[in-house]
Amino acid sequence: MLRVAREFAKHIYNSQKWKKLREYIFVKQHGCCARCGGVKNLQVHHKIWLTPNNINDMDIVYGEDNLELLCHDCHALEHLKKSPTREGLKFNEFGELEEEK
């Protein structure tokens, strides 16, 4: 669900500039989620979310300070304000579902 770009932003995510920046963020953050340290199902997240009103603001779209690497769970928590897993379960650092301790 979170990986589907909204129509107004698709040209950004399909650009070579974004693909290079995305790879740079992965390397810069050592392939680890900035929040939980997980290493599976990682996505580059815009801290200030992209909207039709700010899509032409290059500091928001491509600004390194506005980007962070998040695992699927942390990204879902950011966008959905709830975990994508059933209560009592979480994804571990290998992307496997396990019971919370």
Rank of each mutant, 00 (worst) to 15 (best):
R3P: 13
R3M: 10
V4R: 14
V4N: 10
A5W: 09
F8I: 10
A9N: 02
K10M: 03
H11W: 08
I12H: 00
I12S: 02
Y13T: 00
Y13A: 01
Y13W: 09
N14Q: 01
N14I: 00
K17T: 06
W18E: 00
W18V: 00
K19H: 04
K20T: 05
L21Y: 13
Y24S: 13
Y24V: 15
F26S: 08
K28E: 12
H30G: 10
G31Q: 06
G31I: 06
G31E: 07
G31C: 10
C32K: 05
C32W: 01
A34T: 05
R35S: 13
C36E: 03
G37F: 13
G37L: 13
V39G: 02
V39E: 03
K40I: 04
N41G: 03
N41Q: 11
Q43N: 00
H45P: 01
H46L: 03
K47N: 00
W49I: 05
T51N: 14
T51K: 07
P52G: 04
P52R: 13
N54I: 06
N54R: 14
N56S: 08
D57T: 02
D57F: 04
M58A: 04
D59V: 06
E64D: 10
E64N: 07
E64L: 11
D65C: 11
N66D: 14
L67Q: 05
E68H: 15
E68G: 06
L70H: 10
H72Q: 14
C74W: 10
H75D: 08
A76L: 06
A76F: 15
L77P: 09
L77F: 13
H79Q: 11
L80S: 07
K81S: 14
S83P: 13
T85F: 14
T85P: 11
T85K: 12
T85H: 09
E87A: 07
L89I: 15
F91T: 09
F91C: 13
F91K: 05
N92H: 07
E93G: 09
G95R: 12
L97V: 04
E98Q: 06
E98K: 10
E99A: 11
E99R: 13
K101W: 09
